[in-house]
Design a protein around this nucleic acid. Structure first.
Length: 423
RNA sequence: GGAGAGGUGUCCGAGUGGUCGAAGGAGCACGCCUGGAAAGUGUGUGUACGCCAAAAGUGUACCCUGGGUUCGAAUCCCAGUCUCUCCGCCA
């Protein structure tokens, strides 16, 4: 969520920038500031009363000690009245705070100044493109046929075991998955990331802190009996490592990488969107997460983008980088690059990574701060990106690598698969 | 799942009703000492939200969480939760 003080000091700017995200914020910002005024006023009253009570309590203590119980009793009556008053104030103070908080979490993050205005993905900005965008030959197959032809994935079996969107990888298909995970993890470690293995289930506090709750709860699988959520991405547990944390400035930047299964309900998706590996309920992903100093976070965002580009190059996939327009950005992000690979058979770009700077939006919820040597405390910036999500990478590898002899595996990866062709 | 013990500041650890934001130690920061270092020594060393134009200062809250008792709670009571030990079960 946004910082309250920033909203107070930059009301018009906040409303204007929210408009870039197509969020009409005038009314809610107004209410937030008014509620905050009320909150301050109530706190002042409450604090004053409590200060009085504390003083009286001390006096009573002294009086009782020196045997003046009559005088003490007089004071006791007085504190009784103060207590009633402070109870009332406390109740309304809590109510105001809750109301304020409920409003604050409904305000999306401010887009970075460079974010293009727009409503739909068509208005995203293509900032970079590399590789040969090939047109599929008449004999070329889409990946969902290739996986059957070479017996790599059994969608029907997954369907029987669980349901649609839960594929069963087999043989070289399974090996390819494992190879990709290892390749991505090794590359990240080489680039300086610390490898972590997070839990796959998180509690509501964690889901709330990274912004999946309260607005995207329909996207997550919920285990009702234990009130836990299956992670939609490793971003959730990994970022939550730093919930309620006060770092030293020299701890920054923190670089973590995690492989995890990801679980998404994907309610409302249909059609070509969910064909084959395009959109699954369970998939594998390697995620990079950084906690950064506010002054360097945008450089780090660029370096993450460069890092992911490097992976795609090693996989020899044609890709492009897209800067999302305001309307296509997520609730929590300040600036997002999508990395997309080319699917010749579908003749379209597939998103395989989304790299975002959240600035202080997550850290405010997380209570993730760092401390300067001078003692000054400030929220840190959080960033993350997929590096990379597997299914569409697999789709692109299969479609781009298909030859009459079989599917060619790029050398960087065949070192991990142990085979160079899928025949 | 059963039994017991316990959750105090960055860490260790004292504190069982008042003047306790909390002894002592370690760590850390700065200074002294030293040719330099170690040792020694001195000082400092929390977070959140307010008030104040602001620095200084100052108010409130916080000793796992939430309730309660009391004029007053780290300290007493209740509930929850987590950790540890033993037993059971088990990859």
């Amino acid at each position: 969520m946004l910082q309250l003080n920033y909203i107070r000091d930059h009301r018009q700017e906040v409303v204007d920038r929210l408009a870039v995200k197509n969020f009409e914020g005038g009314v809610i910002i107004q209410s937030i500031v008014e509620l905050d005024d009320k909150r301050r006023e109530t706190q002042k009253q409450l604090d004053d009363i409590q200060a009085q009570s504390n003083l009286l309590a001390k006096e009573i203590g002294f009086l009782l000690k020196s045997g003046k119980s009559d005088e003490a009793n007089v004071l006791k009556e007085k504190t009784g009245r103060l207590k009633d008053k402070s109870k009332d104030l406390e109740v309304s103070f809590e109510a105001i705070k809750k109301e304020l908080d409920d409003l604050l979490v409904r305000v999306p993050n401010l887009p970075h100044f460079s974010v293009p205005v727009g409503k739909t993905p068509e208005e995203n900005l293509i900032v970079f493109q590399e590789g040969k965008v090939i047109t599929a030959a008449a004999t070329d197959l889409p990946h969902w046929e290739l996986t059957t032809k070479y017996d790599l994935i059994d969608f029907a079996a997954g369907n029987k075991i669980t349901g649609a969107g839960f594929p069963l990888y087999k043989g070289k298909g399974a090996r390819l998955q494992r190879a990709l995970v290892n390749f991505f993890l090794d590359e990240a470690v080489k680039a300086g990331y610390q490898e972590v293995q997070p839990p796959y289930l998180v509690n509501a506090a964690s889901a709330y802190a990274t912004g999946q709750l309260p607005d995207k709860d329909a996207q997550m699988y919920h285990v009702g009996l234990d009130d836990l959520y299956l992670i939609p991405t490793a971003e959730v547990p990994v970022t939550n490592i730093y919930r309620d944390t006060l770092l030293k400035i020299q701890d920054l930047p923190i670089m973590n990488v995690a492989y995890s299964g990801c679980f998404r309900r994907e309610a409302g998706s249909y059609g070509k969107d969910v064909r084959g590996l395009n959109r699954l309920h369970q998939f594998d992903k390697v995620e990079i997460v950084q906690v950064a100093h506010p002054e360097t976070s945008y450089n780090i965002l660029e370096s993450m983008r460069e890092y992911v580009s490097g992976l795609l190059r090693k996989l020899e996939l044609p890709f492009r980088v897209v800067k999302l327009c305001g309307g296509d950005m997520s609730f929590t992000s300040a600036l997002t690059y999508d990395m997309e690979v080319w699917s010749p058979a579908q003749a379209r770009w597939l998103e395989v990574s989304s790299i975002s700077n959240f600035e202080t939006f997550q850290s405010n919820r997380l209570k993730l701060r760092f401390k300067y040597e001078t003692g000054k405390i400030q929220p840190a910036h959080t960033l993350n990106g997929s590096a990379l999500a597997l299914p569409r990478i697999v789709a692109a590898l299969l479609e781009n690598g298909q030859t009459p002899e079989g599917i060619r595996i790029p050398p960087a990866l065949s070192a991990y698969t142990g085979f160079e062709m899928i025949r």
